[in-house]
């Protein structure tokens, strides 16, 4: 066998000009994805990016792998078909808060519960960018936008809570410009099953600084918790703050050494679904927002089970013969 060439991040770039606005958070994500693909030894020919519609969904055009830019909200359904028909392909689904949670909310829920082995990156910028700035399902209540001049009256969705409720087997969150993005993407790629990653992404044209609390170098460490499996929930620039479970099963912010000791804090457990859900409900400014892998458990993948059923059927009944098929049912001879 000939040695396959080692690919670098650059090798995953297509020859097309990138048409995102200058300064868009999508660039950082694109670069990280390319780096991660190189790092994990992905093959261009075996990698398929499937996207819906929206700014983020242009992603496949900028990759040198196979790519399918589909229709609004349906990327998970296309990806499911791809994986059913060829489980050997590495499939990434690129979606956004509008594409994945509004028009395509149904498909997102179902690909997660089926645990199809794909990596889903939901770029959450809390706004509709491509259609010029209308509020999205993750926009905060009261959001003023061209379609809500008096402020939106919708309650926003929390993407991670949705994913967990939809029985996702891998759930994580990160920030477009943060150093942990690469790490999380690597973990997502390694996970067998649907990996759901919410990425806080800055739309610097229509919703600039929507996630300033989590991205501003000077203040972010006080506003996010970096999750580490088996470690206590500690945060703060001085790592002096933590999260504890109160007597009435509510989360509370505490100061270590003053309110309690480190051992009294919640210890992160990536296999604990209830903890993951509680973490997903923590939102700024009441709480620091957890970043990293919330939840990671092993479960069967849809396409593996389906392939197994085909193999079992062949084993039990023999490989299907067209002759036998045509001669099945109520047959009779006319002489």
């Amino acid at each position: 066998m000939t040695q396959l060439p080692i690919l670098t991040a650059k090798d995953f770039a297509s020859d097309q000009d990138i048409r995102w606005c200058p300064g868009c958070g999508d660039y950082a994500i694109l670069n990280q994805v390319k780096k991660v693909l190189a790092k994990i030894g992905a093959r261009r020919e075996n990698t398929v990016f499937v996207a819906g519609i929206g700014c983020s969904s242009r992603f496949p055009y900028y990759m040198s792998s196979y790519g399918l830019h589909s229709i609004h909200g349906r990327a998970p359904a296309f990806a499911t078909g791809v994986k059913i028909a060829n489980p050997d392909l590495d499939v990434w689904v690129i979606t956004g808060d509008g594409d994945g949670l509004s028009i395509g909310g149904n498909h997102l829920m179902h690909i997660l519960r089926r645990n199809v082995n794909v990596n889903i990156l939901l770029f959450n910028n809390r706004i509709y960018g491509l259609t010029k700035g209308q509020y999205s399902p993750t926009s905060e209540t009261g959001k003023k936008s061209p379609s809500t001049p008096m402020g939106s009256i919708d309650l926003p969705l929390t993407p991670l809570s949705i994913a967990l409720a939809a029985e996702a087997s891998f759930v994580a969150r990160c920030i477009d410009v943060d150093k942990n993005l690469g790490e999380v993407l690597e973990r997502a790629a390694a996970h067998r099953g649907s990996s759901f990653v919410e990425i806080y992404q800055d739309c610097n044209v229509f919703n600039h600084f929507a996630f300033k609390h989590a991205s501003d170098k000077d203040t972010k460490e006080d506003n996010i918790i970096r999750l580490k499996n088996g470690k206590p929930l500690i945060y703060g620039k001085d790592r002096d703050k933590g999260i504890r479970l109160s007597g009435d099963y509510k989360l509370e912010k505490v100061v270590i050494g003053k309110d309690c000791q480190e051992d009294d804090l919640i210890f992160h457990d990536e296999s604990d679904e209830k903890l993951a859900f509680m973490l997903s409900r923590m939102s700024y400014p009441e709480f620091p927002e957890p970043m990293g892998v919330y939840y990671d458990v092993k479960d069967d993948c849809y396409e593996d089970l389906l392939t197994q059923q085909v193999a079992d059927a062949i084993e039990q009944r023999g490989e299907g013969s067209i002759e036998k098929l045509l001669n099945s049912g109520d047959t009779f001879e006319v002489k």
Partner: peptide
């Protein structure tokens, strides 16, 4: 007819069904 290599997918809706079929065709 699984023993003919047939894969059936009961999708979550009509749209997902056609999209998955296109995805399957895409892979050959």
């Amino acid at each position: 007819m699984r023993n003919f290599g047939v894969k059936t997918f009961q999708a979550e809706d009509e749209i997902a069904a056609v999209c998955a079929a296109i995805g399957a065709s895409y892979t050959g």
